[in-house]
Design a protein around this nucleic acid. Sequence first.
RNA 1: GCCCGGGUAGUGUAGCCUGGUAACAUAUGGGACUGUGGAUCCUCUGUGCCGGGUUCAAAUCCCGGUCCGGGCCCCA
Length: 421
Amino acid sequence: MPEFQRPRGTRDFGPAEMAKRRYVEAKMRETARLFGFGEVMTPTFESTELFVARSGEGIIEELYAFEDKGNRKISLRPELTASVMRFYVNEMQNLPKPVKIFYFGNCFRYERPQAGRYREFFQLGAELIGAPSIESDAEVIALALATLKNLGLEDVVVRIGHLGVLNKFIDEFGVKKDTQIEIRRMIDKQDFESLNTLPDGATANKDVNDRLIKLIRLKGGAETIQKARELMDGGDPSLDYLADLLDRLNAYGFDNCQVDFGVARGLDYYTGMVFEIDAPSLGAEKQICGGGAYTLADLFGGQEVNSTGYAFGFDRIMLALEKSGVDVPSQNLEIYILPICDEAKIAAIKILSELRNAGISADMDLMSRNMSKAMKYANSVGAGKVIIIGEKELAEKSVTVRDMKTGEQARVLISELNDYL
RNA sequence: GCCCGGGUAGUGUAGCCUGGUAACAUAUGGGACUGUGGAUCCUCUGUGCCGGGUUCAAAUCCCGGUCCGGGCCCCA
């Protein structure tokens, strides 16, 4: 029994899994780069107040919060958006607009671990700041979709909503702000029962209520917007906005987006478009991405600025890739060198170094194993080719190169080895 | 915070119901076959999540904890 166990909800990643994770990370970074987003990094911990300012007092329960030796109230970050916007307010407000940034990092939440939910997890997100246009919203959603597409993750559902639609209904209830937030929460949870018996006497308007419930059940393509118009006495500017947004996403080449008026998101700094992406294969914790248009900089003491952003749950993407059978290459060794007599070892090291200097991943037998076991080892680490050096090869300054996939072998002069490979 | 199911060599499993010598496969280490080999053969090492209870005796039954998994709550 090991003396020390990993803390609950954390994970160790071995070489094989890390190779896959790095591969996926690289793909996602590359897509962001193609879209003109630049990477930023912020501290792993921040003042607790920052997260409270973004998400409310209730969040402290789920934070890894502590006091440091200077009695500062500190928390491990539970998400990255707050840090990135804090960074923006501190140092990036005067950059030319729009500011397009993305980030990747570990986050911490004190929650009950579950499938696809850990206490230390990884997020990759992007923010487009300072361009309050429908094109910015489209650009950000397009980046999220392109990222998934480049990873080969096809089995996803994209749902786009608009808070303007919901707010119009909520205004009609004529309730206080707290109640509005509560209602939005019910909508987010699709809690129809509570919606039928709204607090503050809002149930008085049964007709509005019925139409709201019908509305948030609407889900589908562009035709859904027309149905919504009927429920909203001819329409609303936010419906036109969604229609235009779908046109733009089509132009990007994404025609699989659904409109879903039930997407509400829990927070009240979202201002307009909101979207979520699910991977249905994942079960209860199937949401792999959430985002929308928001203003947050002013909450952190900066100038009010319109932004659009999202965050991917990186771990869930890894799970979804695995469940969907998407092939994620793990790094393999290109060359394994096997000196089979003592005299060959110096020659082996020389070749090893030359290969490495030429940028070819190479390894050699360090255990003086017999050929059978050495071949078995080379096979198990996925070596592409094995170079065998023994007395015969030494005598004629050559090596034997064996292709581990085809089984073909060739005797090659050491001086010609680079060209041969 | 709540409900359910689990935890047996590194890994995957059997045994648990009905208490009595912990088993199998595979992997790792070592060895043989002494340069055409990824095979085969031999061999060492290594195991009951933790704590308590019942019992002559607990992997097995009971209680508590812990971790993992499925779900609820929550999900910024």
